[in-house]
Structures are given as C-alpha cells and as structure tokens.
Write a protein that binds this DNA or RNA. Structure first.
Length: 775
DNA sequence: GGCAACGTAACT
DNA sequence: AGTTACGTTGCC
C-alpha cells in the first residue's frame, strides 16, 4: 500500500508544459511530482505529503469560519478555490500518511507492536528531511546510525546518510515551515534574529544601561513618576550596531545561530547547583543529551534534562529565553519558552499513533538528537496557550467585536514603513531632518537637561527601530495556530528524582517566583518542565515590557499570548500592523497597551480591533498619528460582519490616554471629549497644536472629560497660556495639571489658580507650573 | 516575497 | 465517489 507512487513523475514535466493553462500554475509538477517519486528512489526523493494528526488541538477544532481560508470554502459561501484548511486548524504535528512505507522493507511503521522504547524507534518510520526517504531506522545498514532526530516534526529526522554526508537540511526545513516554523514564535526566526543580534554576551556588554527592572513593578507607579529625567534617561541614539540589526526575521540560516547559542549556554554553577537534584517530570537522564555533536555542552542544566514527546522541550525555550534576556536585558520576557506547542501537547501527536514520547528516548540513543529546529518549543508553548487563549479570545470576542484573523493588508499605512526601509545605520533619515509635531527631531531625542520636562509617564523618544522589511510574517502566522495549553494542569508539587515530590507546594513556589525578575524567571524556566510551566503563570507576567526591543518576532508574539499579560509595553519597537492586530485580538484582557514611538502603520491595527478592557493607551510620539488618524482610532470598530453592531468608540473605556508629541489639534480633542467618557488621565505634552481653546474644549460644559479628568499633562505645550488655568477651574475632579515648560504659562497664574481654588479644592505647586491637589 | 490558484494525495 | 487540504506554481 505504498503511497500512491504512480511513477508518472517523468510524464508530468513534459505534460505540464503542454497542458498549462494560461495564468495557471503548471498542472502537475508540484506536489504530485514530488510525491509520486518512486519510494525506492535512493536519494533526493520527494518529500511526502503529510497529513493531519487528527489529535492535536488544532485538528480537533472546528473551522473558525472567519479566516481567509474558511471564507474561501464553499461551506462558508466562498468559491472554494484555495483549498486550504482553516488557519485555526493547521495541524500542529502533521504525520506521515498511513500509506507511507519503509523504502527498504516496504512495510509500514511497526512501533506500535513494540514495547521497548528504543525498539520502537528502530521500527517506526522516519522521514529524512533532506533526502525525504522514509525508512525504519532498523532497516538502515549504517552501523553508526547517527541520524539527527527532528524533535519538532513527528517521524522526521536527518537520516544517517545525509547526516554523514553533511548535507544541509535547510530545504527540507523550509518545507515544513508550514507546520511549525511559521507559527508565531518560530524559533527559526528567533534564532535568526538572535544571530543577527550578535553574540549575546556582547550585546549585554554593549548595553549595560539596560538594567532589568524588578518584576511586579507597579506599572502605574512607574508611569506616574515625576517628570524628572535622570541623565541616564535622556534619550540617546541607539548604538550604531544595534541599528544595523534589522532582522530578516525569516531566514532559515539557523545553524550559526545554534553555534552562537551553544556558546552562550552558560554553565551557571549557581543554578545547576541549586537545581541539580530536581527531577524533571518525564524522563531520566540521557547522557547523550549533554553534548551535541560538536561536543559542546548544550547548556547549564546539566543533568536536569527532560524530554517531552519529541525530546526535551524546555531547554530550547530556555535557551531562547536566556538569550533574549541576554540580548536585551530590558526585555523582561523570555518569550522563548513560549511555544511549547508543537509536540508537547498531550494529544498533539507525533504521527504514528503512539510514536510520541516513546519516540524520543529510543531514538536518542541511536540517533542523537540535535537541536536543529527548536520550534518544538514554540509549538508546545503555543499548544498551551491555545486552549486558554483561543477560548478566551473567542469568548471575549464573541461578545465584543471580533475581528477576522486576517488583518487587512496595509494600504496607505504601509507607506510610512517603507520610508524606514532604506537604510542601515540610521533608521529614519526622514525623521532626522524633519520635524515632528513642530519639534525638531534632534530636540526630541536629545533634550537639553534643563528643558527636559519629560518624564511623567512618558517614554523617552528615541530612534524608532526599523520595521522589518516586510513585517514579520503575520500572514504566515495566520496559517498557524497558537496551540492550546496542555489539558493537564501543572503539578502541584515538583517531582523529584527519587519519585517523591518536593515538599514545597506550587503556590509557595509561585510566591517565590513572584520576587524574581522576568529574566530570572527565564532562567528558572530552564530548570524543568514543571518550573517552566509554573514560571509561565500569567500572574508572574502581568506586565510584559518590550520597550525598545529592536525587533518583535513571532516568537515573542506567541510568548506574549501565552502569558496573557494585562499590560504590554511595545513602545519604540518595530511591531507591524499585522502583528499588533494579531496580538490584540488574542489579548482580550489587555488593560494597558503602550505603543509610544511605534509607527502609525502599526498603531492603526487598533482601528480594526476592539480592546474592550483597555484602560491605558500610550500612543505618544507615534509618527503619523494626527487628527485623521485619531478619528480612525476613536471611531467604532471597522468590523462590518453581521452581528457586529457595536458602534461605540473602541477606546471608550480608556482612562489613561497618552498623546504626547502628536500633531493633534482641537479636532482630536473634540472627539476625545465626546467619545471617551472614562478618560481620567490625559497626556498632551509636547503637542504643539494644543492651545487654550483645546483646554476649553476638554473642559466645556456637556463634555464627559470635564468631570472625568483628574490628571492632565500639558507640559511643553507652548501655545497654552495662563488662560487655560481658568478652564481647569471647571473640572470637578482635576487633581494634577502639568504645565511645566509651557512658555506662556506664568508662575503667577499658577499661584492665582491655587488661591482661587483654595476655597473648594486645595492645590499646591509641586514644581514650577506643576499643580497638584494638596490632599 | 506574498499570495491565489490548483493538482492531486489522503482520507471518508 | 466525494471531500479535505498539502505542497507547489507562477503572477504580482
């Protein structure tokens, strides 16, 4: 029952030339040619089509009915031409078809008949990702069967022949991108980016100023800090080297990355000591695990190895975690770990029914596992995330305005991005020489200390990272699924080597973890599967800060989704519209979103999404965000599907809006005053078009802002004069008025305001022209 | 490089 | 026989 190997591949070529219809792809060269290659072809065979595992969360889901591919389906009223599966149903672990047989013995996989793990491996079908041959490892007559098992894809390896021949598996790797690597958070990309980031340790050295901030940092406190910028906070240009690190996110050249990674893997004596006796859940030690083929020690975990279905899932995550932390200490999120989905999902299965975990241990002895494609990690994480996330998202979106997965292609919004794409060293030449909001670019970036009123919940303007050439493949992402979390809850106690459980309960650990920084958490995530899961608890990640993270990768996105933060800081990143839209739709509980310094092209994703719970929106210094864009932001969701009748302002629940540095005028303020009834804190600093009339609008009778505003920042608004203070007297709830560095506001006027208000509300001058309610 | 389209493998 | 959807193609 061999795969239908019609053997007509040769015919195809000739035939295809003749039969090709105009504007149509060659009829048969593609898959069929590939698939129909005789299976006895000794090498360079065609890769076999894989099929659904039917077990993974994606496979068992129903079609979303909303994605691009669903809409194409006849059942959803489409033409049915695309013939693609629902993007929410992209199989996590596609398996070899049942018809697949060993190229040598012509028999199917026989692992089910065996007990012994190693034997299972020897008798299961393995498809070489390079030559595409499918064999039973046992049927190979190679003594040193040093095939390299691909942990991410069931029944996939680099066969000993290819491995010995030193062939590159890249082509094959790319081929199954579709299965795993395109998933948000793909390690392939991450590695790439890491590579491009350069050596992590170097990066750390390069950026000593990026101190990690303590976790559980009360975000609100932070952004409410007084507007004093320490010298270290002064905006500064990024180091040239960083600027060069625009990533090509999706290159597949990961080998070197691995090399880098391996070098980076530090043997942290502290942690290994601390953890040396902690047993991982699933497995025993594997001496082979300790070294990769180059004899390098994979990472510090030493004996603390575990393996999931396709091997040790955590470690790569961890590596990534540590890496991302190392690379960007300010990033308190590992994101690396994030994707545990591919194979770790309890059900997501390696192909041949039962191959799963067993597949691992056996193979490993014979075929050393080399972490060529750590996507498995991603997948596993995704798997975890999916259940919760999708469910939540869907539940939430069901009640709100649900967006189709596919974000509409950018149109006019693309333009700004393109502008960024033309340079290496200087990311935004157009900005350099251009004024933004009337403030010279230089001024925005190099504030003389005397006139640096910034602060007060303001992200320091800095060079905006260059968006990736083409925004990271969110479209591709759409084809992939954030996989659901495993069904089994995390264990309550840590399993130890001796079979017992650690005395400390999970919740106690959680409290301890609560004292760790995100960076430290990432280290902990390397310890074992249990810790990995525990450390991903969203309570530990209520705020994820990617501020100034040069490149937002799919891996990060999946990591974010997995953690479901309430607060997300993407300021001064190169996040794209698609990425942001994708994120927002999957973070239904998001309360704080910081996008300062991002491009409008990206921020415009908010126009098509609904963030019902969003309380804080920071869009300061968003280039291109003017009145027209504000209108788009504040108008009802552009979701015209049936049932989407909510025509309320998308940001209606926002209480804290940060618009510093924008070229907005009264037009926007009028909208704000009407559409944002909950607005309490408004940052309009550095808005040079704001004037007394603007304040008048905000505080006019009949507006909601009049009563809701408690805190307004008008610092460095040079058109605001003393007169504005009179308007503020109408505000019933006002507690703080920041008029610092407003040239036309006098201290005398402030004192007069205090005097006049003293009857009802005592105010004081906290600083020059910074009025604060006294009590 | 992204995407629509399609042949046909794989499955029901 | 009918349906689903993988993997490839060529156009843009």
């Amino acid at each position: 029952m061999a795969l239908s190997l019609s053997g007509d591949d040769e015919e195809y070529d000739s035939e295809s030339e003749q039969q090709r219809a105009a504007n149509r792809p060659k009829p048969k060269v593609g898959t069929s040619a590939a698939i129909k290659l005789p299976s006895n072809r000794s090498s360079s065979g065609a890769r076999r089509r894989r099929t659904r595992c039917r077990k993974c969360e994606a496979c068992v889901r129903t079609e979303c009915g909303e994605c691009h591919f669903c809409k194409d389906m006849k059942k959803f009223g489409g033409p049915g031409r695309m013939k693609q599966s629902c993007i929410m149903r992209q199989c996590i672990a596609p398996v070899l078809p049942h018809t697949a047989v060993c190229v040598v013995c012509k028999e199917a996989g026989k692992e089910d008949t065996l007990e012994e793990e190693e034997e299972k491996f020897n008798f299961m079908l393995m498809e070489c990702s390079i030559c595409n041959e499918i064999v039973h490892p046992n049927c190979l007559k190679v003594n040193d069967a040093s095939g390299v098992v691909n942990d991410e894809l069931p029944n996939c390896w680099e066969c000993p022949k290819c491995n010995h021949a030193g062939k590159s598996g890249k082509v094959s790797i790319n081929m199954w991108f579709k299965y795993a690597s395109n998933l948000p958070g793909s390690l392939l990309r991450e590695q790439k980016s890491l590579k491009e980031e350069g050596d992590a340790s170097t990066a750390v050295k390069r950026r000593p100023d990026r101190e990690e901030t303590p976790r559980y940092r009360p975000e609100e406190t932070l952004h409410r800090q007084p507007p004093l910028l320490s010298p270290s906070n002064l905006p500064r240009p990024r180091p040239e080297d960083k600027l060069r690190k625009k990533r090509k996110l999706f290159d597949d050249d990961e080998e070197e990355d691995l090399g880098v990674r391996k070098k980076e893997k530090s043997d942290d004596p502290y942690y290994s000591k601390l953890l040396h006796h902690i047993k991982t859940e699933e497995e025993d030690e594997d001496p082979y695990e300790e070294e990769d083929e180059e004899g390098r020690v994979p990472h510090f975990r030493g004996g603390v190895e575990r393996r999931g279905r396709f091997g040790d899932p955590e470690d790569e995550a961890d590596e990534r975690d540590s890496r991302s932390s190392l690379l960007n200490p300010s990033v308190k999120t590992p994101f690396g770990d994030s994707d545990q989905s591919l194979c770790s999902s309890p059900q997501a299965g390696p192909s041949s029914e039962g191959g799963s975990e067993t597949q691992e241990k056996g193979p490993r002895r014979k075929a050393r596992r080399k972490r060529r494609l750590p996507n498995r990690e991603l997948s596993r994480e995704l798997s975890k995330a999916l259940n919760q996330e999708i469910q939540k998202t869907e539940d939430c979106l069901a009640n709100e305005n649900r967006q189709p997965l596919k974000v509409e292609p950018q149109t006019e919004n693309e333009e700004p991005q393109r502008l960024f794409r033309n340079e290496l060293g200087d990311q935004r030449p157009h900005l350099k020489n251009k004024e933004m909001n009337g403030t010279p670019w230089e001024l925005r970036h190099f504030y003389p200390s005397q006139i640096t009123p910034l602060g007060f919940n303001r992200s320091t303007p800095t060079n905006r990272p260059v968006p990736p050439h083409s925004p990271p493949k969110c479209v591709q992402m759409e084809r992939h699924v954030i996989r659901p979390p495993p069904i089994s809850p995390p264990p309550d106690r840590l399993p130890l080597k001796d079979g017992k459980s650690h005395v400390i309960q999970r919740e106690v650990w959680m409290k301890i973890f609560g004292y760790l920084t995100h960076q430290e958490l990432c280290v902990c995530m390397r310890v074992c599967k249990t810790w990995n899961r525990w450390c991903c608890d969203k309570r530990l990640w209520t705020m994820i800060d990617l501020n100034r993270c040069t490149s937002i990768t799919p891996l990060m996105l999946s990591g974010i989704i997995r953690r479901q933060p309430g607060s997300l800081d993407l300021s001064w990143t190169n996040i794209s519209k698609k990425q942001l839209g994708w994120l927002i739709n999957r973070l239904p509980g998001l309360r704080v979103l910081k996008l300062s310094g991002c491009s409008w092209a990206a921020v415009s994703a908010l126009c098509t999404s609904s963030c019902p719970l969003l309380r804080t929106l920071d869009v300061q210094w968003v280039e291109g965000l003017k009145d027209a864009q504000m209108r788009d932001l504040l108008s009802p969701p552009t979701d015209n599907r049936p049932g989407q009748l909510d025509n309320r302002c998308k940001l209606r629940n926002v209480e804290d809006l940060r618009l510093a540095g924008l070229d907005i005028t009264d037009t926007s303020l009028r909208l704000i005053s009407r559409q944002m009834p909950s607005l309490s804190m408004l940052d309009l600093s550095y808005c040079n078009h704001i004037n007394d009339q603007s304040v008048n609008l905000l505080t006019a009778a009949g507006t909601t802002t009049r009563d809701s505003l408690t805190d307004i920042n008008l610092s460095v608004c040079n058109r605001v004069t003393d007169h504005s203070l009179n308007f503020f007297k109408r505000c019933g709830s006002i507690c703080q008025i920041d008029l610092r560095f407003c040239k036309q506001v006098t201290r005398t006027a402030c004192e007069r305001f205090i005097a006049e208000m003293s009857v009802s509300v005592p105010f004081r001058l906290k600083e020059d022209k910074l009025l604060q309610k006294a009590s």
